[in-house]
Amino acid sequence: MHRRIVALLAGTAVALTACGGVQGGSAARDAAGFPTKPVELTVPSSAGGSSDLIGRAVARAVEKPLGTSVPVVNKPGANGAVGGKEVLGSSPDGHRLVMLFKSLMSITPLAVDDPDAIRFDQMTVVAPLTVEDYVLVVPAASPHRTVADLVGAGRLSYGTTGAGTGSQLAQALLFGAAKVDATDVPFDGGAPTITALLGSQVDAAVIQIAEAAPQVDAGALRPLAVFSEARIPFLKDVPTAKELGYDVVVDQRRFLAAPAGLAPEALATLQKAVATAQQDPRYTEFLEKNYISPWTDPADQVIPHLEAAKKGYADVIAASGITFKES
C-alpha cells in the first residue's frame, strides 16, 4: 500500500511537470536516437471530450512501444486551431504531436471563413487513428418513428453539436434534401445537445454513436438513421441515410500529425509505435466499447481523403442549394 502511494505521488509529480508544457527547445537532436525525451501529444480541445479520450487512449497505448512517456496536453481554442497551429509551428523533431480531426479540415472551412486555418502543407501525417459515425436521434417521447415521419411533420428544429461540425452538415443535407422547414439550434458539443434532446427542447439531433449509445440502451433516445456507408453493427436495425434515399455520408475521423518536415527516421519510429499501439488489447477494447472503428487506410491516404471529403461536401452543398454558411 505504502509503495503504491509513493508511486502515486511520484506519478503526480511527473504528470504535473508534464502539464507545465515542457518544451525542450535546445534538446540534442539525434534522429537515430529518437525519441530522446518524452513525446508530448497535444489534444487541441479541453479535457473530457471525445478527442481527449481518444488522445489519452492512444497515448496510454503508445508509451510502451515508443519507449518513452507520452503526456497528453490539452490546448483548447478556436475549435482546435490554437493547439494545432502551436504544434505544427514547432520544431519538427517528432517530440510534439497533435491529434487533428476531419471536421476541422473538411467541414469547418465550408461553414466558417478563416483565412488563417490550418493547411495540409503545414503537417506531416503520422498515422490515421479512428472513424466515428453519426446517428440521427429523437427523444423517446417523440411521435416520430422513422425519418419519413420526422420530415413529414412540417416545421421542426434540430440540435447540432456546433457550427461547422459533422452534426450540422449531416442534418443540413438531410433536411435540405427532404425540403423541410427546419431550423438548426447549435449547442456547444455533444453533452448539451443530448441534454436538450432528452428534455425534448429540439425535435431531433445528430450526435456521435458513442454519445448516443448509453441513452439508446436506456430507451431515452430513439435512433432513426445513421450516416455511414453501411449499417452499424451496434445499430443493425437502423437504416443508413443512403438506404432511405438521401445521399448523405458524414463521419468524424481523427489522425496524428507532426509539423511538416519531420525526419523520415523519426516518422518511421512513430508510425511503428502507433501501429503496435493500435493492436494493444486495452486500446482495441476501448474503441470497441465506445463504438469507434480504427481508420485503417495508410498514412499517405489521409490528406487525399480529407481533401476529397471537403470537395465532396462542398459539391453536395452547392447541388442541394442549402445555405451552410450563415451570418
Binding site: 479541453s46 481527449d52 453533452a191 449509445a213 448509453p214
Partner: peptide, 21 residues
C-alpha cells in the same frame, strides 16, 4: 460543467459508461 466532463471521461476510460443505466 467542465469538471464533470472530465469525470465523464475518467469513467469511460475505466470502462464505465455514465448514463441512465
Amino acid at each position: 460543467n467542465g469538471t464533470m466532463a472530465i469525470m465523464f471521461g475518467a469513467l469511460l476510460l475505466h470502462g464505465i459508461t455514465p448514463g441512465p443505466l
